[in-house]
C-alpha cells in the first residue's frame, strides 16, 4: 500500500456528504461490534465467578463478581504450559522450514531457466488447490512406518508440506518482480549463487517473508485435525487440541471453560496486535491477488 492513493482518496472522502459518511461508519462499526462481541464476552466473563457469569453475562466484572477461579482451575488441572511449548515448537520450526525451503525453491523457479521449470512450478502449486487433509489416511500410515506417531516432528513435516505451496507461489510471484540487474551485479561482484540467495535475494524479500510467515502461522497454530490424528498423546498435545479436550472434560465448570478459551485467544490477539500492519499490508499488497 502506498501513501499516494490513500491521501487522494481521503481528500475525496472529505468532499463526500455527511450523511453518506455516517452510513458508512454505521455499517462498519456495526459489523466490527458483531465481529468482536463474542470474543469480548468470553474474555470478560472469564474474570468472573460463577454467579457473575450467569446472572449478568454482559456486565463488566465488578467487586462482587470478579474472580480468577477459572484461571486457577485451568492452570492447576491442565498442562497448558506444556501445550503452549508444543504449539510454539511446532509453529516456529514449521514456519522456519516453510520460509527457508519455500524461498529457496521460489528463488530457483524464478531465477533460473531450466527444462523442468514450468512443470515443477505447476507441481508445487497443486497443493494450493488440493488440501493436504485428503491424504490423511496415507499420512497416518506413513507416520506409523516412520515411527513418528505422537511426535512433534510428524506435525512439523505435515505443516511444512502444507505451507510450502502457497509460500512458493507468493514468493515466486514476488521474486519475479525483483530486478535482475541486482543479482547480475552480485555475480559480477563474484558472489556464488548461494551467497546471492542469502545475501542479496533474502534481504530483498524480507517484507514478503514476514507476510507469508504470519499467513502460514494461523492455520498451523489453530489446527485441530492433525494434532488429533497424529499427536494426541499428553506429551505432544498442542494448545488447540488441549483446550478442546479440556473443555470436553469441564463442560459444567464455566469459569474454567471461559478461562481456558481466553488463554487460547490471548496469544493470538497479542501476536496480531504486533503483526497486523504487516499482515494486512501483505494481503493487500497484491502478492495474494492471484
Amino acid at each position: 500500500m502506498t501513501d499516494t492513493p490513500d491521501t487522494s482518496r481521503s481528500r475525496r472522502g472529505r468532499s463526500k456528504s455527511w450523511g453518506t459518511a455516517a452510513t458508512v461508519h454505521a455499517v462498519l462499526l456495526g459489523y466490527t461490534i458483531i465481529a468482536l462481541f463474542p470474543v469480548i464476552v468470553v474474555i470478560l466473563n472469564s474474570f468472573k465467578n460463577r454467579r457473575g457469569i450467569f446472572t449478568e453475562p454482559l456486565a463488566l466484572p465488578g467487586p462482587e463478581t470478579f474472580s480468577l477461579e477459572g484461571y486457577s482451575t485451568v492452570l492447576s488441572e491442565g498442562s497448558f504450559l506444556l501445550y503452549y511449548g508444543n504449539s510454539l515448537i511446532v509453529t516456529v520450526v514449521s514456519l522456519f522450514l516453510i520460509l527457508l525451503l519455500g524461498a529457496m525453491a521460489a528463488h530457483a523457479l524464478s531465477e533460473y531457466r531450466f527444462r523442468l521449470n514450468g512443470i515443477l512450478s505447476v507441481y508445487m502449486i497443486l497443493g494450493i488447490m488440493v488440501p493436504i487433509r485428503l491424504g490423511t489416511v496415507a499420512i497416518l500410515q506413513l507416520m506409523v512406518q516412520l515411527d513418528l506417531v505422537n511426535t512433534l516432528v510428524s506435525l512439523i513435516f505435515v505443516y511444512t508440506a502444507q505451507g510450502l505451496p502457497i509460500a512458493v507461489f507468493i514468493l515466486t510471484e514476488f521474486m519475479r518482480t525483483l530486478s535482475r540487474d541486482i543479482k547480475d551485479c552480485a555475480r559480477v561482484d563474484g558472489l556464488s549463487e548461494y551467497r546471492i540467495f542469502f545475501e542479496v535475494v533474502l534481504p530483498l524479500v524480507r517484507p514478503v517473508l514476514a507476510t507469508v510467515a504470519v499467513f502460514s502461522m494461523i492455520p498451523i497454530w489453530n489446527d485441530l485435525w492433525f494434532p488429533l490424528i497424529l499427536a494426541s498423546s499428553d506429551a505432544t498435545k498442542t494448545v488447540t487440541l488441549g483446550v478442546q479436550q479440556f473443555i470436553g472434560q469441564y463442560t459444567v465448570n464455566w469459569s474454567a471453560v471461559l478461562a481456558s478459551l481466553s488463554i487460547a485467544i490471548l496469544p493470538v490477539l497479542v501476536l496480531y496486535a504486533i503483526f497486523s500492519r504487516q499482515l494486512i499490508s501483505g494481503i493487500t499488497s497484491g502478492a495474494v491477488k492471484g
Partner: peptide, 14 residues
C-alpha cells in the same frame, strides 16, 4: 528440500 518434503508428505499421501 522443498520438493522432497512436499512430495513425501503431501503428494505421495494423496
Amino acid at each position: 528440500p522443498a520438493l522432497l518434503i512436499y512430495t513425501i508428505f503431501s503428494i505421495y499421501p494423496l
